[in-house]
């Protein structure tokens, strides 16, 4: 009971803090007469969002959701493909040695610089966008999967070997369940990373309808309020995505009693 009260209290504090900050922001803009194209008032941003919703167009929402959808597609491919590659790398160390430098390099390059290069090579469409997201989110998955499997006690391998288990059984009954907790931790980090990459990847591409492109255009046309309104939408979606991963994690950890030794 006490725990629950604490939670409510911390929510209340958070909420009031945000309100206070918004109020200060509003006052600063009013007092110093900051023009709207430099910093809009919070009330103007809220107004802008409200108009977008009441007009029935839901333009910002639709665009945010589209960017989010692409992030989710890239994210899912990364998790699936990364797990597969992690397992393959564990099985064939030689492949790991060959491919690791390339994957590492793809991580070292900043997305804004690398995305146009990829686009020039692979075209400016939807597939390229997904490929860019996957390129920038798959590495942590591979590393997590490979290292978690490698750190399993040799006894587990001996155990499955004494059952004369097929490789697929070892993967299903030993590898996948053992990597799950660490994989979910990595997935939590990738929720935001995939959304950020999705936004940035939109800039050099011709795929339209995403919030990234919209932010870029609004900024160029000095519609700063729209930029801010878009950011609010983006943050909301990112937080919801992250929170839902947290919930999934909690459910799985509790159900299978992971890490409760």
């Amino acid at each position: 009971m006490k725990k629950k009260n604490n939670k409510i209290l911390s929510y209340l504090i958070n909420f009031s803090l945000i309100l206070i900050l918004l109020f200060i922001w509003e006052q600063i803009v009013v007092q110093f007469e900051i023009p709207k194209r430099i910093l809009p008032k919070p009330s103007q941003i809220i107004d802008y969002l409200a108009k977008d919703f009441t007009s029935g167009k839901y333009a910002l929402l639709t665009k945010t959701l589209l960017s989010f959808r692409d992030a989710l597609i890239g994210f899912s491919i990364s998790v699936f493909l990364g797990t597969l590659l992690g397992i393959i790398f564990h099985q064939f160390k030689i492949l790991k040695t060959i491919f690791s430098p390339f994957i590492l390099i793809s991580q070292l390059l900043p997305v804004p610089a690398f995305a146009p290069v990829v686009a020039a090579l692979l075209g400016y469409g939807f597939e390229t966008k997904i490929i860019i997201i996957v390129l920038f989110t798959i590495f942590p998955v591979i590393v997590t999967v490979e290292s978690t499997i490698s750190s399993l006690s040799a006894n587990y391998f001996a155990l499955f070997s004494s059952y004369n288990a097929k490789k697929i059984e070892v993967i299903k009954k030993l590898f996948l369940p053992s990597i799950l907790p660490d994989l979910i931790t990595t997935m939590k980090i990738l929720t935001t990373a995939s959304i950020v990459t999705s936004i940035i990847a939109e800039l050099p591409l011709t795929v339209s309808g995403g919030i990234g492109k919209d932010i870029y255009n609004s900024f160029n046309n000095q519609i700063t309020t729209r930029v801010w309104a878009s950011l609010v939408m983006l943050c909301t979606v990112s937080i919801l995505f992250f929170k839902s991963m947290l919930e999934i994690e909690k459910t799985i950890i509790n159900k299978y009693r992971y890490a409760k030794e």
Binding site: S153, N155, Y156, A158, L159, S162, K173, L174, P177, L180, Y256, R257, Y258, K260, E261
Partner: peptide, 12 residues
Amino acid sequence: GFVFQKPTLLQW
């Protein structure tokens, strides 16, 4: 059948 020094159970 093999029994190890540690129980080597699957915790999940």
